[in-house]
Design a protein around this nucleic acid. Structure first.
Lengths: 144, 144
DNA sequence: AAGATTACCGAATTTTGTTCGGTCCGATGG
DNA sequence: CCATCGGACCGAACAAAATTCGGTAATCTT
């Protein structure tokens, strides 16, 4: 994980569609060597997968909200329960008064309400506190 | 934006590296037609870009926190100020008692503290409330 | 229903991905 | 100090994929 690797990851985050030749030129390597570096980055798990960024509004997920989930039990083994709700994009165990923080995307506030209903149905969940996003400044890749 | 488009986006989210031939077979189209569909999805902005998922811990961002930022002024024009802090991965205007919610990734809690210090330096910011993530259940693509 | 538009297929063409032998450099250890 | 080893790189050969395009069928427009 040297400077070249970081440069490669950075450029791939910005555009994973470019050729190894272009990528190599940018970091000062041949296409073959670049290919090998990227292969190893994948192998090591630094690069997990190649994906596409989708406009949420274009696919019926125009409403974004973060929900603090309170519980009266240990939630450490409940990952599956949260994963079963497709509108949940992220779920984290957190320190502090609430115990789980989830990121939810829905098409409407009505559907958001329905997600809250389903959250309450999860074993151990005693309350929720939803924070609706009014405007997103930006969402961007990791710093390097 | 029909069923085929949705299937294409779904599969590209899972693996944007596969060939148009494979993608086409999966949805019942030729490679050429698939190529054209995906090109249009990009053109329309449904697909914003092709990128790679990186393991945060592998690139020195093992600490994740969400920070509620309180303010005593209208924050709607402060996107640049937040964007100037590279550790901030997302920034949103929210409804509720706080006015901005940011997602922060750092290598250590010391660096997290430094980010909080820089947040306070933003014009209008009157307070912060950081929630540290202890464990991430999952982070996944949008539902379709 | 005629015309126009769009989507599709399949093959040709170009570009890229992938593999491989040989070289260079730094580390290892005798 | 020198020989050996391993890793990273280059450049070329080969294989595969992207991209383009003419022709056709389906769909929409009027």
């Amino acid at each position: 994980m040297d400077d070249i690797d970081r440069a490669l990851v950075l450029r791939l985050q910005q555009d994973a569609g470019q050729s190894y030749a272009a990528l190599g030129t940018a970091v000062g390597l041949s296409a073959g060597a670049t290919h090998e570096r990227v292969r190893k980055l994948r192998e090591r798990g630094v690069i997990r997968r190649t994906t596409v960024d989708v406009d949420p509004a274009a696919v019926g997920s125009g409403v974004l909200a973060y929900v603090m989930v309170d519980s009266n039990a240990w939630m450490g083994e409940s990952a599956e329960d949260f994963a079963a709700i497709p509108e949940i994009q992220e779920a984290h165990i957190i320190a502090g008064s609430a115990s789980v923080l989830v990121k939810v995307r829905t098409a409407s506030t009505e559907q958001l309400q329905d997600v809250l209903r389903r959250l309450y149905a999860i074993n151990g969940v005693s309350g929720t506190h939803a924070t609706v996003v009014l405007d997103t400044f930006f969402e961007r890749p990791l710093p390097l």
